[in-house]
Amino acid sequence: MRYLLLNEQDTLRFVALPESYMYQLVALLKRLHKEVDKLTIADRPALPVVLAEMSQLEVVSPTCRIEEGLEYVTDLEQRFAKLKEENYPLISLLTEIRALQAQLEFLREEE
């Protein structure tokens, strides 16, 4: 298991994913950062800043929790799915998010 430390709207988030999927999530977040400024709507979704990736994590603060990767990607998909973008081809970003989401859902079913 790998852990990603994200800073999202001044909140730290820890996301846990199997090692083989972590690269995909980091690449997806980089792509979203690159493309979000191309959206023409005023209310763009907030994107996290990737602070660190690690193989071991022990959270000692009761205010922090570790999110499952599928939970995080589902939240990300919902934020982008509700956008009312008319000019930018938002479907390509949603396709990438949903592809990772489907892989994580399949992984959960296999476990």
Rank of each mutant, 00 (worst) to 15 (best):
M22H: 13
M22N: 10
M22C: 14
Y23P: 02
Y23D: 11
Y23G: 08
Q24V: 02
L25Q: 02
L25M: 14
V26M: 10
V26K: 14
L28A: 11
L28D: 08
L29M: 08
L29P: 10
K30V: 00
K30W: 05
K30Q: 14
K30F: 13
K30C: 07
K30E: 13
K30P: 04
R31C: 01
L32V: 02
L32E: 04
H33D: 03
K34Y: 10
K34H: 13
E35Q: 14
E35C: 09
L39R: 09
L39D: 01
T40Q: 12
I41D: 09
D43P: 00
A46S: 13
A46P: 11
A46M: 10
L47E: 04
L47Q: 10
L47H: 13
P48S: 04
V49M: 13
V50Y: 06
L51P: 02
E53V: 08
S55L: 03
S55V: 06
V59E: 08
V59P: 03
V59N: 06
V59I: 14
V60R: 15
V60M: 15
V60Y: 15
S61I: 04
S61N: 12
S61R: 09
P62C: 06
P62T: 09
C64L: 10
C64R: 12
C64P: 00
C64W: 15
R65I: 03
I66W: 10
E67D: 02
E67R: 07
E67F: 05
E68V: 01
E68A: 02
E68H: 06
E68R: 13
E68D: 04
E68I: 00
G69S: 06
G69N: 05
L70M: 02
L70I: 04
E71F: 02
E71G: 00
E71S: 01
Y72M: 00
Y72V: 00
Y72I: 00
Y72K: 06
Y72R: 03
T74N: 08
T74V: 06
D75M: 05
D75C: 01
L76W: 04
E77C: 05
E77A: 11
R79A: 11
R79Q: 14
A81E: 15
K82G: 05
K84G: 06
E85M: 12
E85S: 06
E86A: 09
N87Q: 11
N87I: 07
N87C: 07
Y88A: 01
P89L: 07
P89V: 07
I91F: 14
S92K: 14
S92M: 08
L93W: 09
L93M: 15
L93G: 01
T95F: 13
T95A: 13
T95Y: 14
T95M: 06
E96A: 10
I97C: 03
R98H: 08
Q101F: 05
Q101S: 11
A102P: 00
Q103S: 08
Q103H: 09
E105F: 02
E105I: 01
E105N: 07
E105G: 04
L107P: 04
L107D: 13
R108E: 15
R108Q: 15
E109V: 10
